Amino acid sequence: MSVELNENSMGDLLKEFDVKRINSGDILKGQIIDVNEKEATVNINYAFDGVITKEELVVGDISPLEVVKPGDTLDVYVISPNDGEGYVQLSRLRALQITEKEDLKKAFKNEEVIKVLVKEEVKGGLVAYYGSIRVFIPASLASRERIELSTLLGKEIEVKLTELDLRNRKVVASRRVLEEEAYQTKKKELWKAVKSGEKREGIVKKIIKVGAIVDIGGITGLIHINDLAWERVKRVEDVVNVGDKVIVFVGDVDAEHERVSLILKDVDKEPWKVHADDIKTGDVIEGKVVKFMSFGAFVELFPGVEGLVHINEITDENIAKPSDVLEIGQIVKVKVLDVNKENKRISLSIKDAVERSNEYLQYNDNDDDVTLGDLFKDLF
């Protein structure tokens, strides 16, 4: 009767475990029962527990206690179904090598993102690890922006595989491709949001001959030299320099071709709006000669407001070109002949202003001998 009872007990015991045979090379799921400095005991849902020695559990001089703890579930590789002492000899590292390779194959095929731990900086890039598998990240693929590679040491980063040759242990990954994808997605959203006429804060990134390139938060646009200030600008550097923070107005937006024009000069202080009412036909005012053309000279009356003195209105003398009698930067008196506010054009005369000034001086020089009646006698 006792024999029958023992047989029944053994049968019940075996029902609680997976009694199928296990073989060397199998990969099983296990749960850590106990761990110390030398080994870990693992429940593999089998008649016997498994044991993982330190050498098969961790890489290098690391304590098993730093890697696993009781209750952890992990894949284990069967080295031997029986180590001679009633335990199944297992390896965590060999299981990882197999599962990690399969993970990498799947990630490479499906262009999936994986996480790697950056361990060291070497010539030409970084060495990282996906578990126990070495992954090389070239310096050019470490980031979209220029960075110090050392800043990534010890960090877990996301990458995509660009090359995978496990047989020759060649595994290459890129972090830059992920940053580029994120940047392009963000940029599309930014282009949808930017609107003509709005104000934006930006940073001057580059100076070129025709203007300044400005970043307005992920989008770069051009401030043409004519839009830097209302007055004439000879050199871009006279107004802005690389690194300057500026407030700009958004001009024309071409989201399809990713082009945007920017304006630094304050559109609310457009000189014609500010000074148009101060310029009237017949007025004689001072201005500065700012530009010569074959047909005349441009005179700045206010910053950003210029008028044309036709060559015939410069002097009564016969001259071949404006520079025969004028100089750039020269202050002259001009008479306003005509004002076209709609087209922002002003016609000026220097010779008429000179004649009027001479008449005024003549009367002033002789005012002791001349009466008001003498001055205005022709009017009666």
Rank of each mutant, 00 (worst) to 15 (best):
S261N: 13
V299K: 01
G287T: 08
R259D: 13
I285K: 12
K341G: 07
E317V: 10
Q362F: 14
D338Q: 13
G296D: 02
S349A: 13
A255L: 02
V236R: 07
V299P: 02
R235P: 00
A353W: 03
K291R: 12
G287M: 09
I223V: 13
T220A: 00
D266Q: 09
D244C: 00
V284W: 09
V246R: 05
V309D: 10
A255Y: 01
L337P: 08
A255M: 01
N318F: 15
K280V: 01
R232H: 14
V290Y: 00
L337Y: 05
A297C: 07
V248R: 01
D316Y: 14
L228E: 12
P303C: 09
E286L: 05
V290R: 00
V260Q: 07
E258V: 09
E317C: 06
E286M: 00
V309W: 07
D277H: 12
T281P: 02
K335H: 02
F295E: 02
I285Q: 10
P271W: 00
L348V: 03
V299N: 08
R259G: 13
Y360L: 11
L301W: 12
V253A: 03
G307C: 09
I319M: 03
I319V: 04
E300Y: 07
A276H: 05
V309I: 13
P271F: 07
T281H: 02
R345I: 04
K351R: 11
I331R: 15
E300A: 10
L301P: 12
R259N: 15
D238E: 01
E231F: 09
M293C: 04
E306L: 01
V284Q: 03
V305G: 05
D254T: 04
G282R: 01
K269R: 15
A320T: 05
V334G: 02
L222M: 12
R356D: 11
F295Y: 08
P271G: 03
V309H: 10
D324L: 00
V253Y: 12
T315D: 06
Q362S: 13
F302H: 13
N312D: 15
D277R: 11
T315V: 06
G251F: 04
A276I: 08
S349G: 14
S323K: 10
I331V: 09
D283P: 07
V325W: 12
W272T: 06
D278S: 15
L222G: 06
F298A: 05
N358Y: 13
S357V: 12
L348H: 08
S357K: 14
A276Q: 11
L326R: 01
R356S: 13
K234A: 10
S294M: 11
S261G: 10
S261H: 10
I331A: 03
G251K: 03
K265C: 00
S349W: 13
V239R: 10
G329C: 07
V240H: 14
N241D: 14
I285S: 04
D277P: 05
H257Q: 13
I328R: 15
S347D: 15
V284Y: 02
D252K: 14
V260R: 09
K291N: 09
